[in-house]
């Protein structure tokens, strides 16, 4: 089982999900979000992937009820789009709209908007994730969540812990390298000695 302390530290770092780029509450009329991009980064698919990795978990945390579906394809020439579905003012939508679940193989194409729904698309190709997030915030009308003082404290603690961790990792790496170097030297000396003995 993963050690208690390591798990504890990972849970302490959950503040990274609650705050940061993408931590925002969507307005009530956003019904669902769909993303489509390729697995590999060539031809401008890096930004979308970063958006999915960095911003989407935070959005999901703050809007757990909004379906967020990602369709990853193998076609790098294909589009990289983010589709936002809005409820038209006054319209009531069925609770079970047909929505494919996320796919690794490009099966989850963006569905056509239902009756009483409108669609806004964002082209993500050849753009950095920050730019995509900015456009997303503008077009969706999402309100960013401000970190509470408690969150800020935890964030500072997480940073300190990581800085300490980096120092410790460096120390341990040096130690291991030293031991490895010594082992290599001994092995070399032994092999040389064996060669001399063999030649005598």
């Amino acid at each position: 089982m993963v050690g208690v302390i390591r798990r504890f530290n990972q849970l302490k770092a959950l503040v990274r999900i609650r705050t940061g780029p993408g931590a925002a509450v969507l307005p009530q009329d956003v019904t669902r979000i769909h993303m489509e991009f390729a697995h590999r980064m060539n031809d401008g698919h890096m930004g979308p992937r970063k958006f999915w990795r960095d911003a989407l978990p935070r959005l999901k945390y703050w809007n757990p009820a909004v379906p967020m579906v990602v369709n990853r394809t193998t076609d790098n020439n294909g589009p990289a789009t983010l589709t936002l579905y809005f409820r038209e003012p006054g319209a009531t939508l069925a609770s079970d709209m047909p929505m494919p679940s996320s796919s690794n193989e490009g099966f989850a194409k963006a569905p056509a908007p239902a009756q009483g729904e409108r669609v806004v698309t964002i082209d993500m190709k050849h753009r950095r994730s920050e730019a995509i997030l900015k456009e997303f915030m503008d077009k969706s009308g999402a309100v960013a969540v401000k970190p509470t003082p408690q969150d800020e404290l935890e964030l500072r603690e997480a940073e300190e812990r990581e800085a300490r961790g980096a120092i410790d990792r460096e120390r341990i790496r040096k130690m291991y390298e030293e031991a490895k170097r010594e082992r290599a030297m001994i092995a070399q000396a032994q092999s040389e000695a064996a060669a001399i003995r063999a030649s005598l």
């Binding site: 504890f8 999900i17 999915w52 978990p57 579906v69 996320s102």
Partner: peptide, 21 residues
């Protein structure tokens, strides 16, 4: 150790797993 109710844990886990099949 901080302990979670099932729904709280699920909220975080679903955020970590967003966009996965």
């Amino acid at each position: 150790v901080e302990q979670f109710s099932l729904c709280d844990a699920l909220r975080y886990l679903r955020a970590f797993e967003v966009g996965r099949p």
